[in-house]
Amino acid sequence: MRWRASDGRVLHGWLGGDPDGPLVAVLHGCPDTRHVAMGGDAAARAVGVRLLCVSRPGYGASTPHASTHASVADDLALVAGELGHERFAVLGMSVGGGYAIACAARHPDRVVALGLVATQPPGRRTESVTALMGELAPEFLAWRASVGPDDPDDEALAARWLTMLPPSDAALVAYAGPAAVAASVREALADPSGYLRDAALLVRAWEHGPAEVRCPVRAWFGEDDDRSGVGAAADLLAGFADVEVVVRPGTSHLATLVAHWPEVLSTFV
């Protein structure tokens, strides 16, 4: 699906789950897209929530843009309103957590609950986003070339992608089939600006923090997650007035969400 931002940009997303349920808006990780929410469709229908994910600028068909946590939050609030949801919950996966926090902070009268899954805390770099994107570009572009997102062979592309994931995460992602995995990878990596802007914003101080969040917060982490452990996020989590933290034993990064969609979504009903 596609919507238009207030300045005319294309916002490319996916909408599923129970059309009559309360809205849960997913802020995807990095590099990732609306495809992550598709895996939660059946769980959303069973639990009774409507599930939305809008790919950030530079991902999929969302127009590349000098986006910030704030602009992404406002884009999401606009789409939620167009769908008829004055009030909604936000669920940030990994890097998407910073955007979810911004949405809850900027729209306190509309965001009723905040979920954070394997969220990475902000960094302390002070350079401009543009400078950081330039610094990160060579390594990222070399890695992107090793993935080969332009390869038309779904099975080959999916196989390369899956070898880059922890075995438990790879098994969960592979369940969707090579065509779906390849489509997700192509949308995530077609335009390098999506990843580079996400990465640059992550390592800087964020515009909005926990002290500005009024709604209840639930956070989930995987015990075996070597990218976003609960220890690294302890200071971030301590800043929320109302937070409950769950650490899942023997669980890796993506599995913290992908293997537990029903449990995560049921907290928003």
Results as ranks from 00 to 15, higher is better:
residue 30 C to Q: 07
residue 30 C to R: 04
residue 31 P to I: 00
residue 32 D to E: 13
residue 33 T to G: 00
residue 33 T to F: 01
residue 33 T to R: 02
residue 33 T to P: 11
residue 34 R to E: 13
residue 34 R to K: 12
residue 34 R to L: 14
residue 36 V to A: 13
residue 36 V to D: 07
residue 36 V to R: 01
residue 37 A to D: 09
residue 38 M to R: 15
residue 39 G to V: 08
residue 39 G to E: 11
residue 39 G to T: 01
residue 40 G to K: 00
residue 40 G to V: 06
residue 41 D to G: 06
residue 41 D to H: 12
residue 41 D to Q: 11
residue 42 A to H: 06
residue 42 A to P: 10
residue 42 A to C: 03
residue 42 A to I: 05
residue 43 A to D: 04
residue 44 A to D: 10
residue 44 A to R: 10
residue 44 A to Y: 04
residue 45 R to F: 11
residue 45 R to H: 10
residue 45 R to E: 09
residue 45 R to Q: 14
residue 46 A to Y: 03
residue 46 A to H: 07
residue 46 A to E: 15
residue 47 V to T: 10
residue 47 V to C: 00
residue 47 V to Q: 04
residue 48 G to R: 08
residue 50 R to A: 15
residue 50 R to Y: 04
residue 50 R to E: 10
residue 50 R to P: 09
residue 50 R to D: 09
residue 51 L to P: 07
residue 51 L to G: 13
residue 51 L to E: 15
residue 52 L to G: 07
residue 52 L to W: 00
residue 54 V to N: 07
residue 54 V to F: 03
residue 54 V to G: 02
residue 54 V to C: 09
residue 54 V to E: 07
residue 54 V to H: 03
residue 55 S to L: 04
residue 55 S to T: 08
residue 56 R to E: 02
residue 56 R to Y: 09
residue 56 R to N: 08
residue 56 R to L: 05
residue 56 R to P: 09
residue 56 R to K: 12
residue 57 P to V: 14
residue 57 P to E: 11
residue 57 P to H: 09
residue 57 P to I: 00
residue 58 G to V: 09
residue 59 Y to E: 04
residue 59 Y to G: 01
residue 59 Y to Q: 01
residue 59 Y to T: 01
residue 60 G to I: 11
residue 60 G to Y: 02
residue 61 A to Y: 10
residue 61 A to I: 03
residue 62 S to N: 08
residue 62 S to Y: 05
residue 63 T to C: 03
residue 63 T to K: 04
residue 64 P to L: 12
residue 64 P to Y: 10
residue 65 H to A: 15
residue 65 H to E: 15
residue 66 A to Q: 13
residue 66 A to E: 14
residue 67 S to K: 05
residue 68 T to K: 06
residue 68 T to G: 02
residue 68 T to W: 01
residue 68 T to D: 10
residue 68 T to P: 08
residue 68 T to V: 02
residue 69 H to G: 12
residue 69 H to C: 11
residue 69 H to Q: 13
residue 69 H to F: 15
residue 69 H to N: 09
residue 69 H to T: 12
residue 70 A to C: 14
residue 70 A to H: 05
residue 70 A to D: 15
residue 71 S to H: 05
residue 71 S to D: 13
residue 72 V to E: 10
residue 73 A to C: 10
residue 74 D to E: 14
residue 74 D to T: 14
residue 74 D to K: 06
residue 74 D to V: 11
residue 75 D to T: 14
residue 76 L to S: 10
residue 76 L to F: 00
residue 76 L to V: 15
residue 77 A to D: 15
residue 78 L to C: 08
residue 78 L to N: 05
residue 78 L to Y: 03
residue 78 L to W: 08
residue 79 V to I: 11
residue 80 A to S: 09
residue 81 G to P: 00
residue 81 G to D: 01
residue 81 G to H: 05
residue 81 G to S: 06
residue 82 E to D: 06
residue 82 E to K: 10
residue 82 E to G: 03
residue 83 L to H: 04
residue 83 L to V: 10
residue 83 L to Q: 06
residue 84 G to C: 11
residue 85 H to V: 11
residue 85 H to P: 03
residue 86 E to Q: 13
residue 86 E to G: 14
residue 86 E to S: 12
